Amino acid sequence: MMNVKRNNAWLLLLLLLGSVSCIPQKELLYLQNKESVVDYPDADVITGKYILQPNDYLFIQVSTFDPKISEFFNSTRAGNTSQSTQSNMFMYMIDDHMDIDFPYAGKINLQGCNLPCAKQKIKEALKPFLKDANLIVRMGSNAYTILGEVKNPGQHKMSKDQITIFEALGTAGDLTPFGKRKDVKIVRPQPDGGYQTIIVDITDNEIVGSDKYYIYPNDFIYVRPIRAKQLGIGESFSLGVFSSLLALTLTIVTLTR
Rank of each mutant, 00 (worst) to 15 (best):
S244I: 01
N55P: 05
V223E: 00
K131M: 12
S84Y: 13
G112C: 01
F220Q: 14
A228P: 00
F220M: 03
S19V: 07
K5T: 09
V62A: 07
I94R: 01
I165H: 06
S84K: 11
Y195I: 09
M2T: 15
T197P: 11
G79S: 01
G170N: 10
T256Y: 14
L239A: 15
V187N: 02
I202D: 06
P103V: 04
Y92C: 02
G140A: 09
G173N: 06
A133W: 06
F73M: 08
V150R: 07
L130F: 12
L13V: 02
P177V: 12
E71Q: 07
L14S: 15
I51C: 04
Q83M: 12
R257C: 07
T64R: 09
Y30M: 01
G48D: 10
P191R: 03
A118H: 06
K5N: 14
K151M: 06
N74C: 00
L245P: 09
Q25D: 15
T85V: 03
K34Q: 15
P54S: 02
S21C: 10
L255G: 08
F90K: 08
L52Y: 00
A228N: 12
P189K: 03
L12G: 15
L29F: 13
F102M: 07
G194W: 11
V184C: 04
Y214E: 04
T251D: 00
Q53E: 09
G148D: 06
I100M: 01
R138M: 12
N33V: 10
G106P: 04
F102P: 02
K151N: 14
V137D: 12
V223Y: 09
L31Y: 10
N7K: 08
T164A: 01
I165D: 01
K157C: 07
Y195S: 07
A228I: 04
T81R: 14
F102K: 05
L110R: 01
E206L: 05
S210L: 06
V37K: 15
I215H: 03
Y214W: 08
